[in-house]
C-alpha cells in the first residue's frame, strides 16, 4: 500500500519504494478548475462570518457601556468595569453555586445513567425485547422542554398530581409541593434530565459495543469467565474511550445548564436555587436592558467553558486517551 511521506504534501511512497510527488497546481489554477466547489462552499462561509464570527465581535460591548441610542461603536469604553461589577455583585456567588450545584449533580447522577442502561441492554440476548425497549426509551429526547414541563406539572402538581398523592399516603397526609420548593429544584431538574436523555444517551455506547467481536465473549466464556468478568474485562474497556469523550464534553459544558428547561421550571418560590448564568444573562440583558453587563457575564461563561473543554481534553490525553481533537 501507498504510504504518506511527512513534510511533503500529497507525496506517497509505494510498496516497491518508488516515491510519487504529485504535480501541484497553483492556487489560481486550482480554484478555476474547482470553481463549483468554491461556489458550493461560499454560502456556508458567509454564514459563519455573519452569524458566528460577527456576534463574537459584538462582545466588545462587554468592555463598553452600551446604549441602544448611541450604537455599539460610539458607546463609551469602560475597560473591565462591567466584569468588576459582575464579580463583585452578590448575585455572582449565588449563580456560581446554583450552576455548579446542578452540573455536579448531573455529573454524579445523570452522567452514569446511560452507561448503566447500555450495560443492561448489552446483556439482553432477546433482540426483539431489546429493540422494543430501545425504541421506547429514545422517545423523550425528541419531545420539547415545553412538553416535558407540561408532563411534570400534570404528574407532580400539589393539588391532584399522582406523586403528591403517593407522598401523602406515605407521610400521613402531608403534601409536598415539589414544583415550588427551592430545596427540591436541583433534584427536579436532574430528574427531568435523566428521564429525557438517558435512553438517547445509550446510542453512542451501544454503537461502541456493537464493534466488539462476539468471539471475544465466547472465548472468555469457554475459559470460565462469568457475567461480571465479561463486563469488567470486555464490555467496559470497549466503551472506555467513549466514556472519557462524553466526560470531557460534560466537564467542558459545566457552566451550560441549559436555559429552556430551567427557565420554564423556575418560579418565584424556587428562584433562590434556580437562577443560573444562562437565565441571569437573559433576565439582565434582554428583560432589563443591561446589555453590556450581561454580555460581560456571558463572556465570562464562554471563556470559562472553552478553557474547561481544553483542560479536560489535555487531562484525557495525559491518561492516554485520544481526546477530542
Amino acid at each position: 500500500m501507498a504510504e504518506k511521506i511527512k513534510g511533503k504534501k500529497g507525496a506517497v511512497r509505494l510498496s516497491d519504494g518508488q516515491v510519487i510527488v504529485p504535480h501541484r497546481k497553483s492556487t489560481r489554477q486550482y480554484i478555476i478548475q474547482h470553481k463549483w466547489l468554491y461556489l458550493l462552499f461560499l454560502p456556508g462561509f458567509i454564514y459563519f462570518i455573519m452569524f458566528r464570527y460577527i456576534p463574537m465581535g459584538g462582545l466588545v460591548i462587554a468592555f463598553k457601556e452600551y446604549s441602544p441610542f448611541v450604537g455599539i461603536w460610539d458607546s463609551p469604553w469602560v475597560g473591565l468595569g462591567q466584569f468588576r461589577k459582575f464579580f463583585s455583585n452578590n448575585d455572582f456567588m449565588k449563580l456560581l453555586i446554583n450552576t455548579l450545584g446542578i452540573s455536579l449533580l448531573q455529573l454524579v447522577l445523570y452522567f452514569p445513567a446511560p452507561i448503566i442502561l447500555s450495560l443492561f441492554l448489552n446483556e439482553v440476548r432477546h433482540s426483539g425485547y431489546k429493540r422494543v425497549v430501545q425504541t421506547l426509551v429514545y422517545i423523550p429526547h425528541f419531545v420539547s422542554w415545553v412538553i416535558v414541563t407540561s408532563l411534570t406539572y400534570q404528574l407532580f402538581n400539589v393539588s391532584d398530581g399522582i406523586f403528591n398523592l403517593i407522598y401523602q399516603a406515605f407521610s400521613g397526609g402531608k403534601s409536598f409541593d415539589i414544583l415550588q420548593n427551592a430545596s427540591a429544584f436541583w433534584g427536579l431538574i436532574v430528574g427531568q434530565d435523566i428521564w429525557r436523555e438517558t435512553g438517547y444517551g445509550t446510542i453512542v455506547f451501544l454503537a461502541a459495543l456493537s464493534g466488539v467481536d462476539q468471539e471475544l465473549y465466547e472465548a472468555a466464556r469457554v475459559d470460565g469467565a462469568g457475567r461480571w468478568r465479561l463486563m469488567w474485562h470486555i464490555t467496559l474497556p470497549a466503551i472506555r474511550s467513549t466514556i472519557v469523550m462524553m466526560l470531557i464534553m460534560r466537564v467542558g459544558g459545566i457552566l451550560n445548564t441549559g436555559y429552556e428547561q430551567i427557565f420554564m421550571m423556575r418560579n418565584d418560590l424556587n428562584i433562590s436555587r434556580a437562577e443560573v448564568f444562562d437565565t441571569y444573562i437573559y433576565t439582565k440583558g434582554i428583560r432589563s436592558g443591561m446589555y453590556s453587563f450581561s454580555s460581560a457575564a456571558g463572556m465570562f461563561k464562554s471563556v470559562v467553558g472553552m478553557v474547561m473543554v481544553l483542560l479536560a481534553d489535555k487531562v484525557a490525553k495525559l491518561f492516554g486517551e485520544s481526546g477530542l481533537y
Binding site: 458566528r52 456576534p55 463574537m56 459584538g58 437573559y282 446589555y291 456571558g298 471563556v303 472553552m306
Partner: peptide, 14 residues
Amino acid sequence: TMLFSGGMIPSYLV
C-alpha cells in the same frame, strides 16, 4: 465556533 461563541446578548444585538 463549537468552543466559543458570542453568547446570547451580542448575538441578539447583531
